[in-house]
Simulated scan of single mutants.
Amino acid sequence: MAILVLAEHDNDTLKAETAKTVAAAKAIGGETHVLVIGHQCDKVASTAQTLSGVTKVLFVDSAEYQAQLAENLSNVLVDIAADYEYILAAASTTGKDVLPRVAALLDVAQLSEVVEVISSDTFVRPVYAGNALATVQSHDDKKVMTVRGSAFDAVANDGSAELMTLSYSTAATTEFVSQELTVSERPELASAGVIVSGGRGMGNGENFVMLEQLADKLGAAVGASRAAVDAGFVPNDMQVGQTGKIVAPDLYIAVGISGAIQHLAGMKDSKIIVAINKDPEAPIFQVADYGLEADLFKVLPELIESL
């Protein structure tokens, strides 16, 4: 039984989600290979070789894969799918873009956001915005799965997998034009150990400066609720929730966030949740480990000054 894991990276650094997806592969059992596709990403392939439980790293390096477009990546995955019973990727923006295409091309049903492996064909995944868990069994010959990284602990970096270089030329007609990236010295939201998030209660985007100051004191990432993003306070790459990023930091501080189901689905697995809200009936207090009923515009400056 062979398992293929699609590596998540930016052509320079292997994302932590890959190590967590490998952990899910180990839970399934069988020989695990990691596929690294990109351009000038030798460092990524080398890091993938160290992942515990990985026996082989397949390396495709070409300028046409620098942008890692879903149309291009899916062609490579389908071409080598014959050798694998399982194809896994993190339930990130990349995984959610690539694997549905792979599943459609292979004519199988995709298993989305798996959070637990029961057996080689039975898995648990959240439904109804995470308010319920469904145990599903797949009878497909090939199982295409996205894995929710927050549900698995990353494997160690004590392996020494074999490196195999492959040569592929995509037949896709999609062409990369440009991209705009948010540059920040703070930790990446999806892998941060501490996250400070703001909601509509912040009032406007300028007030997010207070959250940034608090985050800098704590070495944290800054997130936001969908309401704050929809209101134009912050860009959508900061969104935490069902339609944003799924996070599970050691500490999650929710400021001015009411706690709608959509948001809770993205952060309720956090180890410790602290809520600051002036509304005592806010649903966020039901999941918070610590709650402070107060005016955030008075509390935040005091908190920042005290740290």
Score class of each variant (00 low, 15 high):
119 S>C: 12
125 R>V: 13
73 L>Y: 07
81 A>M: 10
124 V>F: 14
73 L>W: 08
118 I>F: 00
119 S>E: 13
64 E>A: 00
100 P>V: 01
61 D>P: 07
75 N>K: 11
126 P>T: 09
90 A>S: 15
61 D>C: 02
119 S>I: 13
128 Y>H: 14
85 E>F: 02
75 N>C: 08
78 V>F: 10
103 A>C: 10
101 R>D: 00
76 V>K: 08
106 L>S: 11
92 S>F: 02
110 Q>P: 07
98 V>K: 06
91 A>G: 07
90 A>L: 07
88 L>V: 02
75 N>S: 10
123 F>G: 03
68 Q>C: 13
79 D>N: 13
87 I>G: 01
59 F>K: 09
100 P>M: 06
90 A>V: 08
125 R>C: 12
108 V>E: 08
74 S>G: 04
99 L>P: 04
66 Q>I: 07
102 V>L: 08
84 Y>K: 08
104 A>F: 13
82 A>M: 09
79 D>Y: 05
126 P>E: 04
85 E>V: 05
127 V>F: 09
84 Y>I: 08
107 D>I: 03
83 D>M: 06
103 A>L: 06
101 R>F: 04
121 D>C: 14
101 R>V: 04
105 L>Y: 02
108 V>P: 11
59 F>H: 12
93 T>S: 15
94 T>S: 12
84 Y>G: 14
95 G>A: 02
109 A>W: 04
113 E>D: 15
88 L>M: 02
63 A>T: 06
72 N>F: 12
69 L>Q: 14
90 A>M: 01
112 S>H: 02
124 V>M: 12
60 V>W: 09
97 D>N: 15
110 Q>F: 00
63 A>E: 14
71 E>M: 10
104 A>S: 15
124 V>G: 00
124 V>S: 12
94 T>N: 08
111 L>S: 07
103 A>G: 01
118 I>N: 03
125 R>H: 14
106 L>A: 11
102 V>P: 01
104 A>G: 02
111 L>Y: 08
115 V>H: 00
61 D>S: 08
70 A>N: 10
101 R>P: 01
69 L>Y: 11
127 V>S: 13
75 N>Y: 14
93 T>K: 11
115 V>F: 10
125 R>E: 06
113 E>Q: 09
90 A>G: 14
78 V>E: 12
110 Q>K: 00
69 L>S: 01
117 V>W: 00
85 E>L: 13
86 Y>L: 04
82 A>L: 08
72 N>K: 15
106 L>H: 07
75 N>E: 15
70 A>V: 10
80 I>E: 03
82 A>E: 10
110 Q>H: 03
82 A>Q: 13
94 T>C: 05
84 Y>N: 13
64 E>T: 04
127 V>A: 14
94 T>E: 11
70 A>P: 04
120 S>K: 01
116 E>Y: 09
91 A>Y: 07
77 L>Y: 01
102 V>A: 08
127 V>N: 03
112 S>Q: 11
96 K>R: 10
98 V>W: 08
64 E>Q: 14
94 T>R: 11
102 V>D: 07
106 L>W: 05
88 L>S: 04
94 T>H: 05
79 D>C: 05
82 A>H: 12
111 L>H: 06
126 P>K: 10
62 S>D: 15
69 L>N: 11
84 Y>A: 06
123 F>P: 00
59 F>W: 15
